[in-house]
Amino acid sequence: MREMLGHAPGRIYLAVLLLSVLALAVAVGMGITETPDNGEPVLIFGWITMPLAVGIVFVLIWLVAYLIYFFKFWPYR
């Protein structure tokens, strides 16, 4: 982590990770995983519940950020 703080891409990478955690907390806090007012739970493709969908998006953000940083910018690559 010390090597990441030593250059701009690393600081951006860490900021993306931190922001994604905050965004997840805000989304959950705003009730994105709850049943909407119409009374029907949200099911993407008919079976993906919102807590699953939110987590998949979260993991995908971490995956893309990792791929970009570790394969292009990581000082120890």
Binding site: V28, G29, G31, T33, E34, T35, G39, E40, P41, V42, L43, F45, G46, W47, T49, M50, P51
Partner: peptide, 28 residues
């Protein structure tokens, strides 16, 4: 498949498909 299973749950226990869940424990 899974769509049919989720549809059945929507009919018999829709609370099990979202938070806070049927017992109301999983608050934000």
């Amino acid at each position: 498949g899974l769509t049919q299973a989720a549809h059945r749950l929507t009919e018999i226990a829709p609370d099990k498909l979202s938070t806070p869940g049927p017992l109301g424990e999983f608050t934000p």
